[in-house]
Design a binder for these strands. Structure first.
Lengths: 357, 357
DNA sequence: CTGAAAGCGCTTACAG
DNA sequence: CTGAAAGCGCTTACAG
């Protein structure tokens, strides 16, 4: 008689029935203990390393572990300890380069800390976030990191009821009270962009912005004001969506409205790449006929050899700090530090800006 | 006397000590049972819905659940049932648009099935994959979906020892025996690209390829051969990395080597966008002076209003089938269907190709 | 339809 | 340094 056995190995081998014990369904601590001639508590002690074990005993246990191919069951451990060593991560999407980078950086940091990553993309939808939060609660994640405020600002009270530490990062909306947050001075980024263009001598500037980035625009506006220039409302053009396509359309609109524009501030990388494309389609070269400042990251879309001038965000540093803040709160009785940490962006000067022709 | 209580609510409120019972650290089935005046098994029955419960009893239980804010502890359930309702997903990276899309689609499908997603990016590194696999094993995921073969072909034996079903998808290398796989006929995609260019009448063609895509190139080559044209080895230019920057450099190299080239096949979307950029930098318009066929997806990088001609892969369908195959294998004693499922790509004709000038 | 018992595989005090 | 006991919060047969 044969039966299908999913116990070990490939998973689907026909194995002879063994009525004595239920196959080798999973080797447990007890099996290791028997083999090594100790109790399972001793096995636990060598596995976790929290209690010292006589070297000769430890050697026997380790040998048994190796022979049996024992792997600790973290689900059981989690139930006993109350810690899953898993962190949830909310991001609006993973298709935007900035958030994709955050996910990879978070994963990297978590791996170093022995944690796993439960990913939830919210698609900027508060309702999705609410469902995910419920899922994370029943699944007992140790902590939750929320990257980006989009769609979430109305749902903060919900997050306040979470059973685990919640840390906010990349938070561009007004900072809510009561949450630890690691974020960036987004307005300062806009300021850097504005000052740079003013220093180059630009006077006829336009902005291609995402509706999610009023703060970046405000910083830009402030820089111009500092330099005696008023940014007219009509010079700010909003892209309906943060896509390349919309970026092109919006830039064309901006340049048609004000053909004399010599410099353009795009509030994120995809829009900046689109702006260059749009300018060229009108026969205007970058930076010869139009300077373009990007934001978030250095976008693709210029020729190799030349690079964008861009407000670059300290994304990696932000993620690391946020992960550590969240993980630190897990086992500290004191709770996380609620003072907001704000990192500063930097202006990286590339080849997409020049003095007005 | 106050103590810091992480039990419920915000997590870090000073709460009066309650020596009777350990605060409200977590409300459990037993609490609900007491409140409703039943045993916890009855609570379990209404929560899981597997055993019918008298309506009046059920109402009492549900009321108690609501009043107490009870949330089932899935860790405990997992230990009891042996199922975590979590699937692992390996992707090479999340920064490439194609894989980012796969992650979001997988998450979507899993959510519908009541599953969560444990994400692991392998960075095309077999050693990372091996570590992740160990993590997933101890964490008892129900299944693992592996998207993309990069860096993994040498580690298949390891995967064969997994304790859970492993499904491969987006597998471009030779199909390994013994694994269920949902993939795409990548060669056919190359064939479609080649035939299209030949039908338009191109004779001087070049290829800008990733080293990971020999099969796509082979299909392309075959299409030309069918049409009496031999693709010289010198016409295939490999991009060192799958980045925009490398794509530009490689295209420039290709066009300098054969200035008479009238059409170009790029083996993936980012390279195609880069090719257009490179061509324009040489003063050649697309498709007027150079036709470009993309692959994977419709890339950004042409003007709004015009689109790429591209070999488009049925990514969503592939992911859905793969997830269902993996999840189906979880509770079927029979094991997954090992016959490879191969989906066909489609050629979407856009504005980036035309008859040779 | 409801209740008492055993068990999932670990860890955590607590004796020796 | 090692062992016996209790418990984490659930589910799964199995009686009533």
């Amino acid at each position: 008689m044969l039966r299908l056995d999913r116990g070990r190995g490939r998973g689907y081998v026909a194995a002879p029935v063994d009525d004595q014990q239920d196959g080798d369904a999973m080797v447990t601590m007890r099996d290791v203990a028997e083999r090594a001639g100790v109790t399972k508590q001793t096995v636990s002690n060598v596995v976790t390393g929290r209690v010292a074990v006589r070297p000769s005993t430890e050697a026997r246990v380790r040998a048994a572990i190796a022979e049996l191919g024992y792997v600790p069951n973290l689900v059981a451990r989690s139930l006993a300890t109350g810690s899953t060593r898993t962190m949830g991560l909310f991001v609006p999407t993973v298709s935007a380069p900035f958030y994709a980078g955050m996910v990879e950086e978070a994963e990297e940091t978590l791996e170093e800390r022995g944690y796993h990553l439960l990913l939830c993309t919210t698609r900027r939808d508060g309702e999705r976030a609410r469902r995910h939060l419920a899922g994370l609660t029943s699944r007992s994640v140790d902590a939750l990191l929320i990257a980006g405020d989009q769609g979430l600002t109305d749902h903060l009270p919900l997050l306040a009821d979470a059973r685990f530490p919640v840390v906010l990062c990349a938070w561009e909306a007004a900072l809510p009270d009561g949450f630890p947050v690691v974020t960036i001075d987004y307005e300062h980024g806009g300021l850097l962009a504005g000052r740079h263009l003013r220093q180059l001598g630009h006077e006829r500037v336009a902005v291609v912005a995402s509706p999610a980035h009023p703060v970046r625009v405000e910083g830009f506006r402030r820089a111009l004001r500092e330099n005696g220039l008023v940014l007219p409302d009509g010079a700010v053009h909003l892209a309906a969506e943060p896509t390349f396509k919309e970026g092109v359309a919006t830039t064309l609109e901006a340049l048609r409205a004000n053909p004399g524009t010599t410099a353009l501030f795009a509030t994120h990388d995809v829009l900046a790449a689109a702006a260059v494309e749009a300018a060229r389609s009108l026969g205007r070269s970058v930076p010869g006929d139009l300077s373009v400042v990007a934001y978030d990251d250095t976008p693709e879309g210029l020729l190799s050899g030349s690079t964008f001038t861009s407000v670059v965000l300290p994304m990696r540093e932000m993620v690391r700090q946020a992960v550590d803040l969240a993980l630190g709160a897990v086992d500290s009785a004191a709770g996380p530090d609620l003072r907001p940490r704000t990192l500063l962006p930097e202006l990286v000067v590339g080849d997409s800006t020049a003095r007005p022709g």
